[in-house]
Amino acid sequence: MAPVSDRLVTVFGGSGFVGRNLVRSLAKRGFRVRVAVRRPDLAQYLMTAGAVGQIRGVQANLRYPASIAAAVEGAEAVVNLVGVMHERGANGFDAVQAFGPGAIGRAAKVAGVKRFVHVSALGLHAGSESAYAKSKLKGEEAARAAFGDPIILRPSVMFGPDDDFFNKFAGLARMSPVLPLIGGGETKFQPVFVGDVAEVLARGAEGSLTPGATYELGGQEVLTLRQIFEFVLKTTNRKRLLVPMPFGIANVQATLFELARTVSLGLFTPPLTRDQVTLLRHDNVVTEEAARAGLTLEGLGIQPATVEAIVPSYLWRFRKAGQFENKVA
């Protein structure tokens, strides 16, 4: 670990899945890290990732410009990781993902921040009807308009011990005898290890990436939804029926899930939303243009970690007998 310097990086949303990996990476590089979150008390566990006083949590809310300005003051670089997969009250897609990047970018520009790194998402299409995709694209535009030359990262679905992807599917397989292959299970993904994404983010914060460039981050393998389900079942030693589900039926099912959330006053979190069904109509893979331009993990000289090398190390807990399970159920 490098000695602690006086170089400061502010990470918005630093207490989440990606954030905790990034904070560790920055701390190892010797940066002081300011973790800007709505609930600093929930980020206290990050303090042990560095030396005493190296990592500090501060309160910041995207709806309050003064809190954003205070969070970026004195920072050399700012990283925005704030995002939501489900809309809840005031934390809707537009408020968080369309408005937020511009608010942070403006504050960073005024404060004289040298680098602004914004995390978007892979697989965005200008003509998409998905509210999530639209808000992500608006967020990229807002970041550019506010800061001028932000570094934008578009990762595919990320995996790691606390992910909401492989863990989610393994949990579903533990409870249900049937797994639905929405759209026939042909949608393609390029899952990327969260540690690799954190490495690129850290490079962006320290000034090793090209200002104004958009990087697309995907793993080594391109997998269909069907292949992902098959991998999860094999890894957790379970046999389940994979049933193709047309997009229309999946949309009806998602509507019922959303109705249940409304009736429960938000206590029920839908496992599938109509917006997610819409997203599944498009592949989530690195484009040929990004690959040719070297704006990928390989282009940065990073050998992506494979799904098979990482995911079994944490999915074993979904087996009937955990780590002691050897036979197919």
Rank of each mutant, 00 (worst) to 15 (best):
S5Y: 00
R7F: 04
L8D: 12
V11T: 07
G14Y: 04
G14H: 07
V18E: 00
R20E: 15
V23M: 09
F31A: 10
R34V: 12
A36W: 05
Y45Q: 14
A60M: 08
P65V: 01
S67Y: 07
V72H: 10
A77D: 06
M85L: 15
H86A: 01
R88D: 12
G92Q: 03
F93N: 06
V96S: 06
Q97P: 09
Q97K: 02
A98M: 11
A103R: 06
A107V: 07
V117G: 04
A121K: 04
L122N: 00
L124T: 13
H125W: 13
E129G: 11
E129Y: 04
A133D: 12
K138F: 05
G139C: 01
D149M: 01
D149P: 00
L153F: 03
V157Y: 07
D162A: 12
D163Y: 01
K168W: 09
F169D: 03
F169Y: 13
G171A: 14
G171L: 05
L172H: 07
S176G: 04
L181R: 08
I182W: 06
G184V: 12
G185M: 10
F189M: 13
V194G: 03
T210I: 14
P211S: 12
Y215D: 10
Y215G: 13
L223A: 03
L223H: 07
L225A: 12
Q227G: 13
I228P: 12
F229E: 01
F229G: 03
E230P: 15
F231D: 01
K234D: 15
T235C: 15
R240L: 02
L242F: 14
P244G: 11
A250L: 04
V252Y: 09
T255A: 14
A260N: 13
V263C: 14
T269C: 06
L272P: 08
A290L: 04
R292K: 14
G299Q: 00
G301R: 07
Q303T: 12
Q303S: 11
A305M: 10
P312H: 04
L315G: 03
W316S: 06
R319T: 08
K320S: 15
G322W: 08
